[in-house]
C-alpha cells in the first residue's frame, strides 16, 4: 500500500472530484490542505471542523439569548439552540452533546437534541483525525474504552468527552491517535501503549 504525504496545490486526480480538502481547477483535482494520498483516496490531515447535518458534536454554551443559546462547536461560527424546543435550561459554560440539524451557505448552524454533559474532561483534537480515533467499525475507540474502563464520547467536531475509569490514560491515548493519525499500524501501536501503561500502573 503506497502512502504519500501531499501538500496544498499538488495534483491529486486528473479529473474533477469534489472532496473535502481539495479543489477543482481546469477539470483537475488539487489538494488544498496537507493530507495523505493512498490507494486513490485523499485523507486531509489538517483542517477545521466543517459542520454537516446529522453530526453529533460536543459544544460549549457561550451566550444566552431571548430565543435560545449560542453554542461554540469548534467551527468558524457558532451553533444556535432554539429554546422553544428545550425542556432543560443551560448556563453559560455548560458542556453538551447535540446533533447538527442544518447548516446553510451563510454559516447559520442549527443544533437540536442537546444533552448536558456532567463532570468529565474534554479534549480537543483536529476534526480530521476523528475517523481514526473512532476506527473501522468503532474498533479503535472500543479498544480505548475497554482497556481504560472510561466512558468516551467522540464529537465529530474534534471534541472528546471522557469520564470515569482511567480518564487520564484514555485522554493520553486519544491525543496519541490524533498526533499519529497519518501513520500505519496505529491500532497495534495504541494497543501496546495502553497495555504497557496499564501493566505499569497495576504494579
Amino acid at each position: 500500500m503506497e502512502k504519500k504525504i501531499v501538500t496544498p496545490g499538488e495534483l491529486l486526480f486528473d479529473f474533477p472530484k469534489r472532496l473535502s480538502g481539495a479543489y477543482v481547477e481546469n477539470g483537475k483535482t488539487y489538494s488544498s490542505v496537507v493530507g495523505v494520498l493512498s490507494e486513490g483516496f485523499f485523507i486531509p490531515l489538517r483542517g477545521r471542523y466543517a459542520p454537516f447535518p446529522g453530526d453529533l458534536i460536543v459544544g460549549v454554551v457561550m451566550e444566552e439569548r431571548f430565543s435560545g443559546y449560542l453554542v461554540d462547536v469548534n467551527a468558524p461560527f457558532p451553533g444556535v439552540l432554539d429554546s422553544r424546543d428545550l425542556r432543560v435550561e443551560f448556563r453559560i459554560g455548560d458542556l453538551l452533546v447535540a446533533r447538527v440539524d442544518s447548516v446553510d451557505e451563510v454559516s447559520n448552524l442549527v443544533l437540536v437534541d442537546p444533552k448536558k454533559l456532567l463532570k468529565g474532561e474534554v479534549i480537543e483534537v483536529g476534526a480530521v483525525s476523528v475517523p481514526r480515533i473512532i476506527g473501522r467499525n468503532n474498533s479503535m475507540i472500543d479498544m480505548v474504552r475497554n482497556i481504560t474502563k472510561s466512558e468516551v464520547f467522540v464529537g465529530k467536531n474534534g471534541r472528546i468527552f471522557i469520564k470515569n475509569g482511567n480518564a487520564a490514560l484514555a485522554a493520553e491515548a486519544v491525543r496519541k491517535i490524533a498526533d499519529e493519525a497519518h501513520t500505519s499500524g496505529l491500532t497495534e501501536k495504541i494497543k501496546n501503549f495502553l497495555e504497557a501503561r496499564t501493566n505499569e500502573q497495576s504494579k
Binding site: T7, P8, G9, Y23, E25, Y30, S32, V33, R46, G126
Partner: peptide, 11 residues
C-alpha cells in the same frame, strides 16, 4: 496558513 489547515490553492 498550511500549518493551520486553512484550504489554499498552493504556496
Amino acid at each position: 496558513l498550511v500549518d493551520a489547515g486553512i484550504p489554499v490553492k498552493g504556496f
